[in-house]
Design a binder for these strands. Sequence first.
DNA 1: CGCGCGCGTCAGGGTTGCGTCAAGGTCGGA
DNA 2: TCCGACCTTGACGCAACCCTGACGCGCGCG
Lengths: 225, 225
Amino acid sequence: MTRVLVVDDDPAIVRALVINLRARQYEVDSAEDGAGALRAAAARHPDVVVLDLGLPDTDGVDVIRRLRAWSRVPILVLSARHASGEKVQALDAGADDYVTKPFGMDELLARLRAAVRRAEPADGGDVVVETEAFTVDLAAKKVHRDGRDVRLTPTEWHLLEALVRAGGRLVGQRQLLREVWGPSYGTETNYLRVYMAQLRRKLEADPSRPRHLITEPGMGYRFEK
Amino acid sequence: MTRVLVVDDDPAIVRALVINLRARQYEVDSAEDGAGALRAAAARHPDVVVLDLGLPDTDGVDVIRRLRAWSRVPILVLSARHASGEKVQALDAGADDYVTKPFGMDELLARLRAAVRRAEPADGGDVVVETEAFTVDLAAKKVHRDGRDVRLTPTEWHLLEALVRAGGRLVGQRQLLREVWGPSYGTETNYLRVYMAQLRRKLEADPSRPRHLITEPGMGYRFEK
DNA sequence: CGCGCGCGTCAGGGTTGCGTCAAGGTCGGA
DNA sequence: TCCGACCTTGACGCAACCCTGACGCGCGCG
């Protein structure tokens, strides 16, 4: 879930933002001054910060600088000032976007989505799943075992990926076949047997007693850490 | 040097932007419609795109989508419309920022700097990447090997750059083709074979046994340190 | 006890994909 | 106008992959 930090000294605005964001499944923290903002950012590691420039204790641009000193979290600035000098200062200090009050909630949310989307592949880069026998890197499409790379064929990789992405849940054979071979392959369960065997031979310590690529007889297969 | 692509059908705006950007040491290309924008983006690989939504031939949002189909270049949208619906559409299609006309040049430039700054470390990380066989300098666009410069053709460089920027991740052949040759070249995989061979001949110690420019059969290619 | 079912294993044959080479085409500079 | 560098395109051999069928095994059930 995406975590947002809202910083504003006007309780009405904070409330409006919190309600709207929570309704859209964001996790929201809030702060009402610069010190609180920096504390919250350090403690909670938000995925994006919505920052009002007119805070009671600190200059907003200074908050941006201090955040940027150690974090690359996207910062979306709110401000009542329309003057372009303010905007330039904030943006050059490291802000990602600048919205003037009064703002439309739809627009703000869209800009927020844009900021989060941009940041995603940057720091959430590698999705790596580890087991005691091998390591799967879903982003790089790489499998590691005993310090060496394991070579997988395209079909083997697709199958492994489908299982790993299910995150430990059971995947039915029909679903597996459709994901890997395409929508018209619902019954060729022998494909699964052949390729599961190859995967186990390449990945399991003891292929005849799989510990991670598990068969659920009559139902399907499951990946287990 | 940072390369900017300006897309607008109003010559006055294009001129103003080009003058201001060139004065600040940007390298500027321009296009006046959607088709030209896509062509220019494919040919010149700009570091940021400034895009007017009201183009004569195409819906601006559609241009954004088509760009996003193969590129992550930052897109800064210009528009005369203040309506929030337009903004939301453009941002959700993949735009990075949205500025309404008339705009202040200072503000636009600041937003442009923000967009470029964000993108820089996002896909590169290191500007210089070293292997035991050769060294790639992404900023200087140079390749060193055994203490001397290696001469690469433009296409060879694009290909190498796309692989190195992926940072060890596997790059699918379709994606590679689109990044290097443009969005309409999704299937000419023989290009890849030819140019990968040339790169290996120039860079690998033993071109028949590549250690850094690796083929993943059926899936794509990967750069490995 | 015999049978059927589902799963794992193995090996062979058709097909695809990759590396290689060479020739034709295009563009810009001398 | 000629020349060279670069890009495109096609052909060919080879290795790897995908599919397929056959067989063996364990289990549950009649």
